[in-house]
Nucleic acid binder design. Structure first.
Lengths: 217, 217
DNA sequence: GTCTATACCAAGATAGAC
DNA sequence: GTCTATCTTGGTATAGAC
């Protein structure tokens, strides 16, 4: 995304290539079940070289989390700035967040294991999660003011929690129940629909139509 | 549940004690992060002895799953037999299933990792999951006929999937977001409320009252 | 059925040549 | 920066005495 001279865009710096390969592997299987030798092989370098770039396996996890974190922060900030009452904005945010979680899904597969293997992540993870919550809360409030949605006071917090839970774990369900082994991008629509259906009962007719047209895209 | 003479109920046979301790440890941390030596220590026996009773670590997982499975089957069958249109039956089933998932929560923390470490579980897990789905589907149908609930045709399947997702992963959310480290039985009510709130928008006034009184117990 | 001792192995990590 | 070779650790599992 900022390589001095992009004459040979085929391969980035080794460090970047390592991160790319590692992310793919971690998304496939939990980090504990991906060995450093496997990572090295998939990058096409030697294991010793891998350790030159990242002194420990945990450093890899940390580096990947940093990338996720910065993207998440961008997203939340963008949504905080937005004051548009355009209906598409809300579904757009949902879609972006959704896609981000998907790209870094290894982080969410077993959060407690993740934190156990990299304790320094405890607070950052909590922070991102809270930030996302506030963003959704903000979004819902704006939608309520615009008359797109109407959620009884007492049901708001449970709804928020469920949005978080479903947007994080729909992929696991799909993998298990439908027997989908290698989840691909096209399954993202399924998950998006699951999260949307949490909101649907509370939507106005107009908002429901907008949501449906977004889902059909 | 069928011990020849129950004169000394204080301690069961070693095999049972092993399973009890192991379940507790697995619920605390993922099986991969619980060592056999730890298990032996917590049972109060030697590691060699542990291996006498269970030849491999996987055998422990399998044995625990069997217990879960049989309880799950009982539950689903009981609900299939029931033709009562008593409102409490539905919330009762939900509560039972919920408590079962809670008792064996280690099975659900990272299903893909579980299946990877014990591939023979793939089909049984899928079967239990489907069985539970049908039970909930059956339950919803009966509730609809009794006029307690009204879910539009198109929203039924997404709702079912969300019930499964939330009833399985609420504990993870709580652990992360509220900073609850050692989840205890009292948190069960919180999770039950999350699942209930998925149904709430579709309930009749009468059913909603029944649900609320169940939740307050 | 329970223990002690020990083999085995895979994975993370380091040293040092190129 | 990249490689080869090697060390180290800790966890699973077995042998065999009691």
């Amino acid at each position: 995304m900022a390589t001095g001279s992009d004459a040979k865009p085929k391969l980035g710096a080794t460090k970047d290539r390592i991160l790319t390969s590692t992310l793919a592997l971690f998304n496939e299987r939990a980090p504990d079940r991906v060995t450093t030798s496997e990572i090295a092989r998939s990058v096409g370098i030697n294991e010793g070289n891998l350790y030159y770039h990242f002194k420990t396996k945990e450093a890899l996890v940390l580096a990947l989390f940093k990338k996720f974190e910065s993207e998440a922060v961008d997203l939340v900030q963008a949504s905080a700035r937005s004051t548009s009452t355009e209906i598409g904005v809300y579904s757009g945010f949902l879609r972006d967040w959704f896609s981000l979680v998907w790209n870094f899904r290894f982080l969410f597969r077993d959060l407690s294991a993740l934190v156990a293997s990299a304790p320094s992540l405890t607070e950052p993870i909590k922070a991102v999660s809270s930030g996302m919550q506030s963003a959704v809360r903000h979004m819902i409030n704006q939608m309520m003011q615009a008359g797109f949605i109407s959620v009884p006071e007492k049901e708001q917090e449970p709804l928020l929690a469920n949005v978080w839970i479903v947007s994080t774990y729909w992929a696991v369900y799909l993998g298990l129940q439908e027997g989908v082994v290698n989840l691909k991008e096209e399954h993202l629509g399924w998950g998006l629909n699951q999260v949307s259906s949490l909101f649907r009962p509370y939507l106005s007719g107009e908002a429901r139509d907008a949501l449906d047209s977004m889902l059909n895209r």
